[in-house]
Amino acid sequence: MACSSAGIKPHGYKCMSDLLLSVEALAATYNHAIRALSGVSLTVRRGEIVALLGANGAGKSTVLKAVSNLLYAQRGQITEGQIHFDGGAVTTISSADLVRRGLVPVLEGRHCFHSLTVEENLIVGAIGRDARRSEIASDLDRIYALFPGLKQRRKSLSGFTSGGEQQMTAIGRALMSRPRLLVLDEPSMGLAPLVVESIFRTLKQLNVSEGLSILVAEQNSTVALRFADRATVLENGRTVLGGSALELRQRADIKALYLGSPSESAARVSSSSNRAVA
């Protein structure tokens, strides 16, 4: 099925190994009572950027936490379905081991260590995969090359840096773990459009130059669809749509229906009120 489109790999990869992450018919609850997901499926192939779209409360964050096996820490449970990362069942691998295997999350709301400096934040990311000292130094240089703004702020307490810098710190911290699949939850949240643009551009650059696979949940579908290869749309905890990002971008009706694009709904309101006047 998906194998043919993934292209021919020179080293004779088997078909299955192109699939880095697969989520099948996932259902999840919080406190064994509140149903957050009921039937979510998505896949991420190697070297792909996949956007997970949906309105507030659609279940994007829950899916991402389930993927990183962090749901239990917020009293959530997976009740049905399966998640596989690189052939292993995610639910049987601790979040710490997932990081070491290359699945690294960037949490919603950045979650920097506010009382640590920017550089210490980055180093904690390296400790998270048991990196050696020499590796840490070179990885730091790499992060500072990607986010030059961080280098100037490296000695500042992360809590005192701007929202954009905190997002870069959080992404940099995740990159220090040398991920193969980066799982980002709303990187655009509360940031100026220019900052969002530069962050997505850096991610795309990593994707193209190093083959980093990315799963990114976004409310800002316009930006996400511009940088993603494919997208999956959630509504009320289930998958309602999936396809190539290009295709989804051209279907304005989908945007208005599921993603609540402000310009679209405004256009609708004005057209309907025009009609009423006429």
Binding site: A73, A96, R100, L116, G128, R173
Partner: peptide, 13 residues
């Protein structure tokens, strides 16, 4: 001590 959930997410044991 700063952020337990984030510490868990970055892979600290």
């Amino acid at each position: 001590a700063d952020d337990q959930f984030a510490a868990l997410a970055v892979g600290l044991r």
